[in-house]
Write a protein that binds this DNA or RNA. Structure first.
Length: 108
DNA sequence: ACACTGACCACTG
DNA sequence: CCAGTGGCCAGTG
């Protein structure tokens, strides 16, 4: 298993319940060599991995761009709603407040 | 080896 | 303030 798989999953696993992060934020945190596309791709391959809360990762506008890749198209929204995140028209409400940026939150 | 495809994003005009 | 564009990089055919 390539390292970046582990890296991405590690960061995603750190996103607190009820918060969301973005592909770009994770990519930047992992280093300039990583692209946000690759982050999305890793999550795509991680759908079946329970330990990775892929539903907490959205694009920079708070849009649920990955919902189509879950078991059902409403599953991502269900999970987030269950955690207290309100979704309206596939968008995270109050996204700015819920946004969790690893390069800020994980700064030692 | 080559071209194309993404759960993306920053920059430009 | 937009829409367009180009870079990003791993996988797939």
């Amino acid at each position: 298993m390539p390292d970046f798989f582990k890296d991405v999953r590690e960061v995603v696993a750190l996103i607190p319940k009820g918060r969301v992060s973005t592909y770009g934020a994770i990519a930047r945190f992992l280093g300039a060599s990583k692209s946000s596309r690759v982050v999305g791709w890793v999550l795509n391959k991680s759908v079946n991995v329970d330990q990775v809360p892929a539903h907490r990762v959205v694009n920079r506008y708070g849009f649920l761009s990955g919902k189509q890749h879950f078991q059902t198209v409403s599953y991502m929204e269900e999970l987030l709603t269950k955690e207290g995140v309100i979704i309206k028209n596939d968008m995270v409400l109050n996204f700015n407040d819920l946004f969790w940026d690893p390069s800020i939150e994980l700064r030692w």
